[in-house]
């Protein structure tokens, strides 16, 4: 959930409203916020599944150190979504191992 009004910080400075997709679904966020924040505000918890055990991973450190939150952004895998700014029209995909769901499923049939 977004914080509309904060007792110390007031309102948050946000960029323009932007549209992006997550696994083909239309989503809305604000330019300049992190991809991870926009996803978290929309209730998305799983950013990727691990390669071997297929376990879900999400935001963990949120400062670009742990790489738990990496996703496929505009075709590029392993993008740290917590420190990558959201832009209009971004195509974001849940990462399976280091690939898209389709590629991973084709391999693991």
């Amino acid at each position: 959930m977004r914080i509309a009004q904060h007792p110390i910080l007031g309102t948050y400075e946000k960029g323009q409203k932007v549209h992006f997709t997550l696994d083909g679904q239309d989503m809305v966020g604000y330019e300049g916020e992190s991809i991870a924040a926009a996803l978290h505000a929309a209730g998305v918890m799983t950013h990727r599944y691990t390669a071997k055990q297929h376990k879900p991973r999400g935001i963990f450190c949120a400062i670009g150190r742990c790489t738990d939150c990496v996703m496929i952004v505009d075709g590029q895998p392993n993008v740290r979504t917590c420190i990558t700014e959201l832009k209009e029209g971004m195509n974001i995909q849940t990462q399976y191992g280091v690939e898209t769901k389709e590629a991973w499923e084709a391999k693991n049939k």
């Binding site: 977004r2 948050y12 916020e33 950013h47 879900p56 991973r57 963990f60 450190c61």
Partner: peptide, 19 residues
């Protein structure tokens, strides 16, 4: 997902404005 560091909590709520 849902286990986070304290710094992550701060980044989300104090920088990004997301609970």
């Amino acid at each position: 997902p849902g286990v986070i560091g304290a710094g992550a909590a701060q980044a989300l709520m104090n920088l990004q404005g997301v609970q």
